[in-house]
Design a protein around this nucleic acid. Structure first.
Length: 272
DNA sequence: AGCGGAACCTGTCGGC
DNA sequence: TGCCGACAGGTTCCGC
């Protein structure tokens, strides 16, 4: 489900609703999501802690707590956060309930149970064992950096854009949209890209992700913000899911192919 | 290095 | 109507 713009949308929603709140108790209905921790240890590490900051790194949410610790959450495909009054009855996909001091409930709901939640006492502990590439909206992600990533790689550029160790935060929808905007064939081997092409990809990445954040993300099926609203960026998608629809640039039907076991959409005529 | 395949889960949709 | 396979915004591991 969520790529960088969706996670950022969730982050902003959480920031508005639960910043400054203290966790009084955690109920865990699906232990796998907190593995390798246990319900006892997880609860112990969060009870009595106050949420002082909520950040995003790539597709991860980082809850900064005091006394010092960090709750790191990845929503994977279908994870979502919901804030409700504590009187809420349990819903089928609720996997964790964080009881808050102000009688509200922070619910982690996840249909497919791929999401992960972990607590670290030091942020460096997490950073050390998670090798993440550059943030695509940071200054470090520029054409020189991308060109360097591409230099010795024959992988299709679409794969490389999805490689979180190189560029952290782009997912399957935005990879297709970015390459369409940059007019690059998703199958193009990375090491065949010219400097101007790399530059176009960087520009397109910044443009598409920023625009998607402004529109609160994309809701193809079930993405919802913390406020339970859908994103609006799906109205602006130009190729993702548009098989056989005419290209907005040249009218050629959009084509769907499979790369790395995932769907890619592109215009076979104006992406080279 | 890079590919294909499978696994982790659950739900939905289209075809027969 | 009902069953069955394909597919879904992500990541990781395994074998070749």
């Amino acid at each position: 489900m969520p790529e960088l713009p969706e996670v950022e949308t969730v982050r902003k929603g959480l920031e508005q609703q639960i910043l400054g709140q203290t966790i009084t108790q955690v109920e865990i209905f699906r232990e796998r999501l907190i593995a390798p921790s246990t319900p006892e240890a997880f609860n112990q590490s969060l009870r009595g802690k106050t949420i002082v900051d909520i950040r995003r790194r790539a597709k991860y949410l980082i809850f900064h707590l005091t006394p010092e610790s960090y709750l790191i959450v990845h929503l994977r495909m279908t994870g979502k956060f919901i804030v409700t009054p504590a009187t809420q009855t349990r819903q089928p996909h609720d996997r964790l309930w964080f009881h808050l001091e102000n009688q509200q409930l922070l619910i982690f709901s996840d249909i497919r149970c791929f999401g992960t939640l972990q607590v670290f006492s030091k942020l460096e502990q997490w950073e050390k064992h998670t090798q993440l590439g550059e943030e695509p909206l940071s200054q470090n992600f520029n054409s020189a950096y991308l060109k360097n990533c591409c230099l010795n790689s024959k992988r299709p550029i679409k794969d490389l854009l999805l490689d979180q160790n190189k560029i952290a935060g782009i997912g399957n929808i935005y990879a297709s949209e970015i390459l369409f905007d940059a007019q690059i064939d998703p199958r193009c081997p990375a090491n065949q890209l010219s400097a101007p092409q790399c530059k176009r990809i960087v520009k397109a990445t910044q443009k598409i992700l920023k625009e998607a954040i402004l529109k609160n993300g994309t809701s193809i099926s079930d993405f919802r913000s913390v406020e339970n609203k859908t994103g609006e960026f799906q109205a602006f998608l130009k190729v993702y899911g548009k098989t056989e629809q005419p290209c907005v640039r040249c009218q050629t039907p959009i084509q769907k192919i499979t790369q790395q076991q995932r769907s890619s959409f592109f215009c076979p005529s104006c992406q080279h």
